[in-house]
Computed example of a mutant assay.
Amino acid sequence: MLKGAIFDMDGLLLDTERLYCESWIEAARAFGQEPVEGFPRAVCGSGGQKMLDIIGKYYPEVDAEAFRDFCLYRVLDILQREIPEKPGMREILYFFHRHGVKLAVASSTKLDTITDSLGRLGVLPLFDAVVSGQQVEKGKPAPDIFLLAAERIGCAPGECYVFEDSANGIRAGAAAGCCTVMIPDLIEPDAELCSLADAVYGSLNEAIEAVLTGSI
């Protein structure tokens, strides 16, 4: 078992990627655009300037920042009423916590949204570090966020698991040199992601079993 475990949040711990997909579609219509196929996959897991660049590529006629904010505020409004958990979220966090593994969350989401969501679910105290895409120069798929998370929990990147659901997150975890584990949500792994990920499991509970048996 490795010394650290770093988790993405949306689509991995929280069942929120569907909310984002719906909100991107609403944003496109609100800005007078036809929803572009492939955009949700491309933007999933990104943040900061990278997200704005992706919006600009798929929707060149819109104000990328306003388009982004429309989506994010819609999701935040929904999360004020309910925060949907992914199956196995509590189990895997408590499993690692019991075994003395240092925990971090590394999400492209704003810091206050991360702490509010995990705090309301009662799991924030389990984490030794919380890292937001706001705190690094380059967002996923750059490795910066995972390198910072590993540093903050006092582990080398190679001593950490990274659990991710998105293509950009898997690319970032692999680039950081972490043991990168994909738990697919809306995006099934293609040949590229299978080659980058150290393992792919259908759920967080399956990942627990893999750690217990020494598969990862």
Rank of each mutant, 00 (worst) to 15 (best):
I83T: 03
T109H: 08
R81P: 01
S108Y: 07
D116S: 11
S108L: 11
K140T: 13
G122A: 07
F96C: 14
E85A: 05
R98D: 15
A142K: 03
V131C: 08
F96W: 03
R90M: 00
A106G: 10
G133R: 10
R98Q: 15
L126W: 09
G133F: 08
G88V: 08
L93G: 04
L93P: 04
G133D: 14
L121N: 04
Q134G: 01
G122C: 10
R120A: 01
G133E: 14
K86E: 05
L121S: 01
R81T: 09
L103M: 08
S132E: 06
S107N: 14
A104C: 11
R120K: 08
R90K: 15
V136M: 11
I114Y: 14
I92Q: 07
V105E: 01
V131P: 07
L93H: 03
V131Q: 03
P125V: 09
I92W: 04
H99S: 06
A129E: 09
P141Y: 00
D128C: 06
I114N: 14
M89P: 02
E85C: 10
Q80S: 04
S117W: 00
S108W: 10
S107T: 08
E137A: 13
T113P: 00
Q135P: 05
A142M: 05
A129C: 13
K86T: 09
K138D: 03
F96L: 13
S107D: 08
P87Y: 00
E91W: 05
P84L: 09
L103W: 00
P87M: 12
K86W: 03
A106M: 12
P125T: 09
L93M: 10
K110P: 01
L126G: 06
G88W: 03
P143D: 01
I114E: 14
G133K: 09
L121C: 09
F127S: 13
R90D: 02
V131M: 05
A104L: 03
S117A: 15
H97T: 01
M89R: 07
R98F: 06
M89F: 06
A142L: 03
K140V: 10
R120C: 02
V130Q: 02
D112C: 12
H97M: 02
G88N: 03
T109Q: 14
E82P: 00
R81D: 14
G139I: 05
V131D: 01
P87L: 11
V131A: 05
H97N: 13
R90A: 08
G133Y: 12
L103F: 02
S132P: 07
I83L: 02
F127P: 13
I83V: 04
L126K: 13
A104I: 01
E82F: 00
P84N: 13
V136K: 05
V136R: 08
S132D: 07
A129W: 04
L124N: 04
K140E: 08
Y94V: 05
E91S: 12
V131K: 07
F95V: 11
E137R: 15
E85P: 06
I92K: 05
F96K: 03
D116A: 09
G100F: 14
Q135V: 02
G133P: 12
I83N: 00
E82W: 03
R120W: 00
D112Y: 13
Y94Q: 09
L126V: 12
L103D: 04
L124P: 11
